[in-house]
Write a protein that binds this DNA or RNA. Sequence first.
DNA 1: TGGATGTCATAACCCCACCTTATATCATAT
DNA 2: ATATGATATAAGGTGGGGTTATGACATCCA
Lengths: 294, 294
Amino acid sequence: MTSKLDSYRIFNEVSKHKSFSKAAKTLYMTQPAVSQTIMNLEQELGTRLFTRTSKGVVLTTDGQLLYEYVSSAVNLIEMGEKKLSESKNLMFGEMKIGVGDTISKYYLLPYLGEFHKDFPNVKLNIINRTTPELCRMLKSGELDIAVCNLPVKDPALEVQECIDIHDIFVCGEKYKYLTIEPRSIEEIMQLPVIFLESKSNSRQYVEKYLISKGIKIQPEIELGSHDLLLEFAKFNFGISCVIEEFSQEYINSGAVCKIRLIEGIPKRAIGFCFLKSVPLSAAARKFVSITLGK
Amino acid sequence: MTSKLDSYRIFNEVSKHKSFSKAAKTLYMTQPAVSQTIMNLEQELGTRLFTRTSKGVVLTTDGQLLYEYVSSAVNLIEMGEKKLSESKNLMFGEMKIGVGDTISKYYLLPYLGEFHKDFPNVKLNIINRTTPELCRMLKSGELDIAVCNLPVKDPALEVQECIDIHDIFVCGEKYKYLTIEPRSIEEIMQLPVIFLESKSNSRQYVEKYLISKGIKIQPEIELGSHDLLLEFAKFNFGISCVIEEFSQEYINSGAVCKIRLIEGIPKRAIGFCFLKSVPLSAAARKFVSITLGK
DNA sequence: TGGATGTCATAACCCCACCTTATATCATAT
DNA sequence: ATATGATATAAGGTGGGGTTATGACATCCA
């Protein structure tokens, strides 16, 4: 590319108006400036672009050739700027949101639904990864925002807690006797226990806590989703370690029962994470406000 | 359009290389300049376009949106410049050539053929108009070059004579006796004469000359093309006023005979005309040199 | 662990490209 | 003739966009 792109904007305007002075007006500059710019452009390209007449200018053959390309290019840029501003008004665009856990999806889903209802033209791109992976993706710009299991200690990331979650044990009818009075975790561990698969974040959190207490777990069963934990507990396969907040339906209906602990597993939280250095995109900002606003 | 187009060229390069410093190299500028330009652009557009990382930059969601448009636009401009330079090498392009007379076509045709053979990718656009109309079109930039009946006295136009032409009278077998010795025009005018239709340039030229000599013509027949003039003379419909240079075939084969005049009609010329102020396009220059070069 | 190397950001400065004003010139219309 | 409106030209000032120099980090590798 040989010339200043700016001169093409001027070239485009002159071509549209077939006049230096008219183009100058719409460009908020003076006619001599336009005149010079075009002369420079002609010199750089080594060809005459306009034929000057007493009532304006006319594109030469070369000028016409160039104009076909330039007008499209300028239109494209204008289109891009328009789309960008539309995206700022959430009339358009995309949001890449990372989600820490399959579990988080159960929590997030209604908010995502609401967001999508309000801004149907913003495409949602939901990516499921582990928390450290999400942090990496945030920092590398692959995500607009992430919903992670806290704590996240990365200094480059801003964290906005949005909900506390509690790891609890639940059981079905068969083990209901456990719920009469608080139990110790050691006691529970003697029984058949059901955990998420070991690579999951929640499993690791609980496991780490228990190890710090000197307790090693030997799950009877390992499952891949939070839903299954509840189902298996309900049908008395054992004691499931679940997140209280995501199990309300099962607990309220009596399908499973929460086992009170003498010393509960410390609560943790999930929250929004995003880069400190980058302002949130309009879409992400709106989504956060929708989620936290209720 | 809110921003300087130039910054989009830089934006494009940065996006391609995912790096300020690499883009700076290919743009032959320094990294801080790129850095500033992008920052200005981000500020003007009111959105972050890149996420900075320790090993370069990554487009944000907004940046990606914009890049789709900008990259196409920049490519279009580059394409346009390429086409333009190709057109300078006559590998591509278009030439709008005005031709003064249907007759001129017979003279020009072989040269046009040769030009087209040498530069098949240059589209030829041939426009037939009267000489004054061609001059107007030249001055208004609608033509690259014109082949006109001379003289053309317009001060804005450059004229390049290319061939003299002579208006002569020819006849067929029946009137062959006229060719034995030179005749006066008055004598010829007593016989049935055949001219081009009165709106044609050639007809007007001859008619004006004859009127200046006090001779008024009353054509027996008026025809629309030079070819027909020859055919009608050949079959003895009368004496045709034709251009000697375009009638060589008929004369050489004896199909028609030239009538020598005591005082011939002054020669006139045809020539290339083009705007003094505008350098000839590469194609037109080449075509002129092909035509005159032989 | 501690350079070495790479990234981008920041600050200060500087210069020329570009724009402005003023004027000329020409063509056309009134 | 005069007025109007087009582009061209000349001269001059200024600010934007570049430069250099430096800083702050991250990553890599020995």
